[in-house]
Amino acid sequence: MTTVSTPTGPQTPALPVAPRRRPRNRHRPVWQEQPSLPGAVAKGLVLTLICLAVLFPLYTVVLTSISTQATITEAGGLVTVPGEITLAAYRQILAGGIVTRATMVSIGVTTVGTLLSTTVSVLCAYGLSRPSSLWHRPILFVLVITMFFSAGMIPTYLLVSGLGLIDTYWALILPGAVSAFNVLILRNFFMGLDPAITEAARIDGAGDWRILGRIVLPMSKAVVAVVALFYGVGYWNAFFNAMLYINDNAKWPLQLVLRSYVLQGVTLPGSGVGQVDVATGAVTGLPVKMAVMVLAVVPILVVYPFVQRHFTKGVIFGAVKG
């Protein structure tokens, strides 16, 4: 239990000691004791270290993406000390409008896909959430099987092709629309809800659709947000299905387009001096790779806080209100 106990610090009967030393945190519920000084220091230290461990590499990635080739050559890799700054990598990627259109494709696919997947998963999870309901065990089994037995790439391709989905956006959504993992997570939360509430509604004559819509969903915003985030990130980051199923380059999603910039300037195996390199003015290598990494994360950075709200509201907020 050590990992769990550290954050809260030693269990001193802190109430009488602390108030004089520091002003009361207005976010602390009245019933919660003041933290002890060593506890607070330890916690602060751990959190600072964690943040640094993430921020420093992040900083080098961003810095490298805006460094000139000369600076990168000097550093011999990722840049840690700022040198000459240039936005050439970003300019190059964003020029020509291809990225803009691909972004629209990705937003469309992600939105429709996330809505579809989340809806289907919530329905399925709720449908399986009442213990001993009809056929729920065989249905669960059908779900779980898909987690451990996958179909190969070629059979899946033949199916998608056979359904006439090649070069359609549905090919990017339908094959991976349902994740058994996410269904199980949702189901787990639904089952954790106080059965008394749903039971009461049932006695009042509410059907399952109504219970799901009016009672279960409003109480499960947090987990639905998390699952939607999982699906959304999945759709947003996916490139492999698009690579396989989309021949029309105008329909490429963002991740596939961004990857193509990373590949720029690659020496082909066995390629010699004859290899065409028309775009000699192009920025290649590290700065582009890093810029691509940054650009791919930006939309997630934008959306995350809105989603985050739903799964961080809880104890403390509630307590303040109460």
């Binding site: 809806t119 399925c124 179909a151 190969g152 059979p155 339908l174």
Partner: peptide
């Protein structure tokens, strides 16, 4: 439990087509 079973159908349909059919491979 009719409605519960019906609720699982969309997921089962998707998995049936896109997971189980190619799984025959």
């Amino acid at each position: 439990d009719r409605s519960l079973v019906v609720m699982t159908l969309p997921a089962l349909l998707l998995l049936g087509v896109f997971a189980y059919v190619p799984m025959a491979g």
